[in-house]
Design a protein around this nucleic acid. Sequence first.
DNA 1: CCGTATCCTATATGATACTG
DNA 2: CAGTATCATATAGGATACGG
Lengths: 125, 125
Amino acid sequence: MFTLRDRITYEEFLQHIHEGIVTEAGGCPVTPVLTLFQGKWKNQIIYTLCRCGTMRFGALKRALDGITNTMLSSSLRELEADGLVTRMQFNEIPPRVEYALTEKGGDLMPIFYAMMNWGLKYGNK
Amino acid sequence: MFTLRDRITYEEFLQHIHEGIVTEAGGCPVTPVLTLFQGKWKNQIIYTLCRCGTMRFGALKRALDGITNTMLSSSLRELEADGLVTRMQFNEIPPRVEYALTEKGGDLMPIFYAMMNWGLKYGNK
DNA sequence: CCGTATCCTATATGATACTG
DNA sequence: CAGTATCATATAGGATACGG
């Protein structure tokens, strides 16, 4: 048997999934990621920041078609609280604030990659 | 340039993400997967069916702690409509219905694997 | 046993107006 | 420019009861 402390390959993952996975104390390691991908905007914000690099509030708003001030603001705050996004405030007139992905946020990209591959195989309809 | 018709490696994915990805006509290939992972139950149903194989309605309900008849039923119907789950009905008394993952559903596992790796690296708190 | 029908509530999201 | 405050609404999810 193994614990999830060990690195395992995808093949090992598939094998052991059937016999139940011994998780670290405290629960399933997938759950927090699932929480992140809930909701309409956070995943798009993460993807956009990865694609475009550092961005200002207004640029993000323009890139995310249809998002409101309220949702962008609250989403960014939660992402910052979770350590996925950094917020750099410059005290200038007019004000400037820049957002960027942290390494922790960028490390979500393999998940997007896996999702893309599934989407490519099975279509986007 | 490339279109997403081609298979690309993760490294290529990361490179090209910055210059924008040319998607197949009709939109982003990640979007349908994102939709699947929205909500509280569908992902747990998929994972449970992969872990346990073919399962009856009642067994699924017991495995998914707290799910109601309503949610399990409607979720299964949507998963079936999307081709991720098969439904086998046996006309016996008492009635028996068995659910199982399709190949399309099982092919979502690399996404869970990627999520697990992120969770292992960054903790499940 | 395997659901459906009905009703209810909480939360996520949207719209609009306003400020340092 | 970069937000906050306030109010409105849609949808997801839950509770309960009943039926083939």
